[in-house]
Write a protein that binds this DNA or RNA. Structure first.
Lengths: 279, 279
DNA sequence: GGTACACCCTCCTACAATAGGAGAGTCAAG
DNA sequence: CTTGACTCTCCTATTGTAGGAGGGTGTACC
């Protein structure tokens, strides 16, 4: 019989942890003095502690180790737990490798004196909108006109959410871009021949980049977004959306308006499908 | 201005977390109503929150994110933090991959109906011993005789620790194995021509396997230990030690003795050097 | 046989990031 | 003005590990 300190000394498991394993029932001392409460361990407990430590090194939680050591599980259940652990580890490694790539990309951008911008992946909810879709020349004034037309038409039905521009072309096009200007609605309005009423679908995995500044300089940021998607092993799964969080407009929800182009805030959103996450 | 719920809704950062970021100073609301305590956020805070989420996805802790966002660090410091993160991630990935290999090995053993045994890596402390070293035939009775001889010689100086057998051959040898039988000492004794007194050095990284059962069947377990070392990317860094935690002996510390070979408990220890840990 | 000191006990606290709940106050739409 | 949705603070929990306080225990040495 060993006192807890001796047992700790040569198993290299701290006294704190041995007491913890006792409390959670993972490893009870073979004898506890009822007078003093002193724990006494025997060599016979060594294989069990050894297995606990080994399973811990395999990445199992103490709770799962408890299950595994309970002994009342079939070989099939044992295998299932191990398979589960393998899958968890594989997923974790994949996620960490994507992270590593991203950190390296950021370092590379820093080394090249390029601006560091941040992309995040998140869900975007569905949104009822009124919209107008049209082929126009890129960066043209026509876009403003389209937004204004839709806003005027929907009037009080406009929701207090930022307007959205959708790009329906799959590839880059020099002129005649297929765009849709969408204004969020509080409730449906009657469609017309030019103004449609529809619901922008929710997107579970949206790669999002927030850009602050005038529209002329947004291309480098957008490039980063595409780079991010590619490097992360994602594929594009829908039309890009530009969300105007802060923009120049005499109309529209007041809290989204500003006049200084340097204060413009735009969110670039690209729906993606990824290998390592649920759709 | 958005109330916390709205801000949470479209950033997909939970209200709980927004309040948390406020408390730790990571993201203060642009306005807090002094009456109600209500937090109000503005679009201008979106880039910052976005960056926080992006850095979190890169694996940074909130504390480090705080440092990174403080803005008062040079590009060099920024780079250093990223480099650190890269190194941390690389190390983590390597460790997880070793884990994964081990889980897969365990599954393979399970599928082949081989016994699952557990190897752990730990430190072993230095130990003063009296020992006798000799070439003998493997598994011979001579080993017992050597232990008995040393035990008899050291007498009361014997410490209450298990005897150790060291194998000094680097490779497997059919006959004439170079072994050393070591008995732990409480304090030094006089050496003789045949009995040496020395300190078994501490080993920082010892691959250890606990084996329960008679000596005849220990080879498969030992094979696992070698396999484990190889698969983990370690190299052997010293002589193997067998520690007799529970063995048959009429003498020796009482708490290590038993007569039933099925109750024998032996620890196989092999010093290793590994790529991913400090020496 | 006593005393000092190393050891052991329980109970509390902390970490980091996140989540849930209780109880009370606030805002906005009808 | 009521009601229901929202918000506030404060408390608790998670997981594995560690530190400390305050008090009891075992033993080696004198």
């Amino acid at each position: 019989m060993f006192k807890i300190g001796e047992f700790s000394w040569f198993t290299r498991v701290s006294v704190k942890m041995l007491r913890h394993y006792d409390r959670i029932g993972l490893l009870k001392p073979s004898h506890v003095d009822p007078e003093s409460g002193y724990r006494y361990y025997s060599v016979e407990q060594l294989p069990r502690l050894h297995r606990i430590v080994a399973l811990k090194d395999l990445g199992f939680s103490l709770e799962r180790i408890g299950d595994l050591l309970a002994g009342d599980l079939s070989e099939g259940q044992m295998r299932a737990l191990l398979e589960q652990q393998r899958a968890d580890l594989a997923a974790l490694i994949e996620a960490e490798m994507v992270r590593l790539v991203r950190v390296e990309d950021t370092l590379a951008r820093l080394a090249d004196d390029l601006p560091v911008v941040d992309v995040v992946l998140r869900r975007v909810e569905a949104q009822l909108v009124a919209s107008m879709r049209q082929r126009i020349d890129p960066f043209s004034e026509a876009i403003s006109a389209m937004f204004v037309a839709v806003e005027q038409y929907v009037g009080a039905a406009q929701a207090d959410r930022p307007p959205v521009l959708l790009y329906h072309d799959v590839e880059f096009i020099e002129e005649g871009v297929d765009v849709e200007t969408a204004i969020p609605l509080k409730h449906p309005v009657e469609p017309t021949r030019r103004i449609h009423v529809r619901t922008l679908p929710a997107v579970d995995q949206m790669a999002v980049l927030v850009y602050t500044g005038p529209y002329e300089h947004m291309m480098p940021a957008l490039t980063v977004l595409y780079h991010w998607i590619e490097r992360g092993g994602y594929r594009i799964a829908g039309p890009q959306r530009d969300v105007y969080l802060r923009y120049n407009g005499s109309r529209g929800p007041a809290r989204h308006l500003t006049t200084n182009p340097d204060d413009y805030i735009t969110e670039f959103q690209i729906p993606v499908k990824g290998p390592n996450h649920a759709l």
